[in-house]
Design a protein around this nucleic acid. Structure first.
Length: 489
DNA sequence: AACATCGTCAACCGCAATTCT
DNA sequence: CAGAATTGCGGTTGACGATGT
């Protein structure tokens, strides 16, 4: 581990005459803070003369008192040609949503697909979006994002993940095979029986729910704790009973990798790769694992990002919301959560429809560009049928950007296995003695079959809600502003 | 008018990977 | 091969303007 001079010096900063901070070290003073137009000009001249890269040499060749890191950032985010400024278009926004559903917080990857946009812009947009939807009580992803859209295709894996990701991928495979093919069938059970090991089980909870690198400010509420391989090995000794139990329940990562996509196009291929890869986000609909719509008391197989569910955003109990009387369809753009409740019972599973942009994205995603990618990226054709969102006041009277994609449209022939009702129902099934939470497509199908076998969905909601009370530790029962630490759940 | 809240944006920070020496 | 330097990425923070109370 090493640090740039900037890193080493930033603690010595003082106030520059221009109001920006400056760092002093190695006999030079590095300015920090906002860039002036003069500095921009110097940097532009430098790049025109020497080209991009070699940012640390900027100081040598110019009078610019900025660290290379800062120069690179300034150039990449503001000065380089072909940068597109201004608000994201609806097409871009939709693209970002889909890409995020597929990639996770891979801002740089997303930026590759959005010519003229920077990773920073996209990241800022997404964080703003999270806040906005949090406030509006909307799910993070629109219902249009079907499961098949979000399945981490081998194509994407082979074409897009970086070498780092590949290594992590491999690590995780190894992790899954030999080190930790131990996941907990019933975390509560394990915790209750083995209180001494609760810290470890919580550790798993964290990882099942979140990624090591929490992405959003809300994800950050959950500590990113990834058990090291060593910890996992040790966990075997901590869970002598559970590990043997659980091994029977879970398949190897290869099992999921190989079987899930084959069983059904809409299969729920939950990633076994821990938090190591954006492919973790494989189930992503308007309510997804990614959204954390499942109470933490439910052991989830596969990593789940910790973007908290919309109903956790509310000050009211999530399950209270789920039990609320349905509101008229489309009565309010912010009612999409309730819209799930009012939806009539799903009738059958329908094959996926076209995946739209996401399919378009995949070929484009293959285009690997150079470090100067932004300069000459091919334009991605963006469908024109996408309509712009509208603005409407939120419940607080603020003008919020309406996520029109979130309007839940009832489609009688579609069962969305990522719907929270189904997911919660799967929880209920567990609690009713049905073995195991949905772990793979077959289990999910079982759950669906159960649900579709005459079970009264509405009653199920109530049952789920009440049964969830058995597990008081769930995040779902917590208000957003009163989130307990994960380790205390 | 003052204050609070929110959204947006730019920049910084820490970390890890890669490249260089 | 090891350590240093550089680069890139993702998370976070703070400034600032707009808006609401």
């Amino acid at each position: 581990m090493s640090y740039s001079s900037d890193d080493l010096m930033h603690s010595f900063y003082d106030e520059s005459p221009a109001g920006g901070r400056s760092s002093r070290g190695k006999g030079s003073v590095l300015k920090k803070g906002p860039w002036t137009s003069k500095e921009d000009g110097i940097l532009i001249n430098y790049v025109n003369t020497y080209g991009e890269g070699n940012w640390s040499a900027v100081q040598k060749h110019t009078s610019l008192a900025r660290c290379g890191k800062s120069c690179r950032l300034r150039w990449a985010n503001h000065l380089r040609p072909n940068l597109k400024k201004g608000a994201f278009s609806p097409e871009e926004e939709r693209l970002i949503v889909k890409m995020h559903a597929k990639m996770g917080n891979k801002w740089a990857h997303m930026a590759e697909q959005l010519p003229g946009r920077t990773d920073n812009e996209i990241k800022n947009y997404w964080n703003t979006r999270i806040k906005r939807r949090h406030r509006a009580g909307l799910p993070l992803y629109p219902p249009e994002l079907h499961v098949e859209d979000l399945q981490w295709s081998e194509e994407y894996i082979t074409s897009n993940i970086t070498r780092v990701d590949r290594r992590r991928h491999q690590d995780c495979l190894q992790f899954g095979n030999s080190k930790a093919d131990v996941l907990f069938d019933d975390l509560n059970f394990a915790t209750s029986l083995l209180p001494v090991a609760s810290d470890v089980s919580d550790m798993f909870t964290c990882n099942m729910l979140g990624t090591g690198g929490s992405s959003s400010p809300y994800e950050s509420y959950m500590p990113p704790i990834l058990p090291s391989p060593k910890q996992l090995r040790e966990s075997g000794s901590l869970f002598p009973m559970c590990s043997s139990n659980i091994k029977q329940e879970f398949h190897s990562p290869e099992h999921f990798q190989n079987t899930a996509p084959q069983k059904s196009p809409r299969s729920c291929s939950i990633s076994p790769y821990g938090n190591q890869h954006p492919s973790d986000v494989l189930i992503s609909d308007s309510h997804t694992f990614t959204d954390g719509m499942i109470p933490t008391s439910i052991p989830l197989f596969g990593a789940v990002k910790l973007e908290l569910p919309s109903f956790q955003y509310s000050e009211t109990s999530a399950f209270d919301q789920w039990k609320t009387t349905p509101s008229p369809p489309h009565s309010d753009p912010l009612d999409s959560v309730d819209a799930y409740i009012q939806s009539p019972p799903p009738l059958e599973i329908e094959e996926s429809s076209d995946t739209g942009l996401l399919d378009m994205l995949l070929p484009n995603a293959k285009i690997k560009t150079s470090a100067k990618r932004s300069m000459d990226l091919p334009e991605i054709p963006i469908p024109t049928q996408l309509s712009a969102g509208e603005n409407s006041p939120d419940s607080a009277g603020n003008l919020v950007k309406t996520e029109e994609l979130d309007q839940q449209v009832w489609e009688p022939n579609r069962v969305d296995i990522t719907r929270p009702d189904v997911l919660l129902a799967s929880s209920w099934l567990d609690q009713q003695g049905c073995v195991g939470i949905v772990r793979d497509s077959s289990s999910m199908s079982d759950a669906l079959a159960f649900l579709l076998g005459g079970e009264d969905i509405e009653n199920s909601y109530v049952t789920v809600a009440s049964s969830s009370g058995q597990t008081q530790q769930g995040v779902g029962s917590c208000t957003w502003t009163n989130m307990p630490p994960v380790w205390s759940l």
